[in-house]
């Protein structure tokens, strides 16, 4: 992995003013406060046996592809077919073949509510691979990472996940990238092998967030999902 170095305080990341720092500290403090109150509320309600009934309904709806659709009969002028190479090579990116390739600095991920003071700082960014984890296990890992982050206050995580339980990441305010698992991508095949595509996606993710390294949780390594 060749992640670009995150330059200290680049032009996009200005040092925050005292007011901004103070506000960020306040967000952190409020987040902890809310966390505590919510926990207390949940416990109290559980002790009192108070709970609502939740009905979850996500029916699979079939396609209703339009059958009455009829393309108008157009006047057509035929021509020779257009040539295409079966597997085009990657175009060169060299000084002797200058190509347009817009570049941008890496993005700064959301730091999470409990370490919000790290927002828009140059703290190192770690990829946290959680592919294949159950929702329960994912919950535990997120709590673990949040706890570790609170202790060290020197990193921002970006989770790499195959779970659609995005609310878990949202709860902590953590950044995440989603790649569908094998069972979710059966319907449509791509133009190239999925693993090649996933490798390119991963490479892009690494550059986009300037991941310093990737820490894996669970049995599914990156690229095997």
């Amino acid at each position: 992995m060749n992640a670009p170095a995150r330059s200290p305080l680049s032009s996009r990341i200005a040092a925050p003013s005292a007011d901004v720092r103070s506000l960020r500290q306040r967000v952190e403090s409020q987040a902890r406060h809310i966390e505590t109150i919510e926990g207390r509320l949940r416990q109290t309600m559980a002790d009192a046996g108070l709970r609502s009934e939740t009905v979850e309904l996500l029916p699979a709806l079939p396609r209703r592809a339009i059958t009455e659709y009829q393309q108008r009969v157009w006047k057509t002028v035929a021509a020779e077919p257009v040539a295409r190479a079966d597997q085009p090579p990657a175009p060169p990116q060299t000084s002797w073949w200058p190509r347009h390739d817009e570049t941008a600095p890496p993005l700064v991920p959301a730091p999470g509510w409990s370490c919000y003071e790290l927002a828009n700082t140059t703290a190192k960014v770690l990829g946290i691979s959680v592919f294949g984890l159950t929702e329960e296990r994912l919950h535990e890992v997120l709590a673990l990472i949040a706890s570790q982050q609170r202790k060290t206050r020197d990193f921002t995580p970006v989770f790499l996940t195959s779970s659609t339980a995005f609310h878990l990441f949202r709860h902590h305010g953590f950044a995440f990238e989603y790649l569908p698992s094998a069972d979710r991508r059966q319907n449509v095949t791509g133009q190239q092998d999925w693993h090649d595509y996933a490798a390119h996606r991963l490479e892009l993710i690494c550059r986009k967030w300037a991941l310093a390294r990737i820490v894996c949780f669970g049995a599914q390594a990156i690229g095997s999902w």
Partner: peptide
């Protein structure tokens, strides 16, 4: 995915507060 369509996710700038 519930409708049977493959889906990719693009993290939105506002969620992360990105430039």
């Amino acid at each position: 995915e519930q409708h049977g369509f493959p889906a990719e996710h693009i993290p939105f700038h506002a969620y992360n507060g990105c430039n």
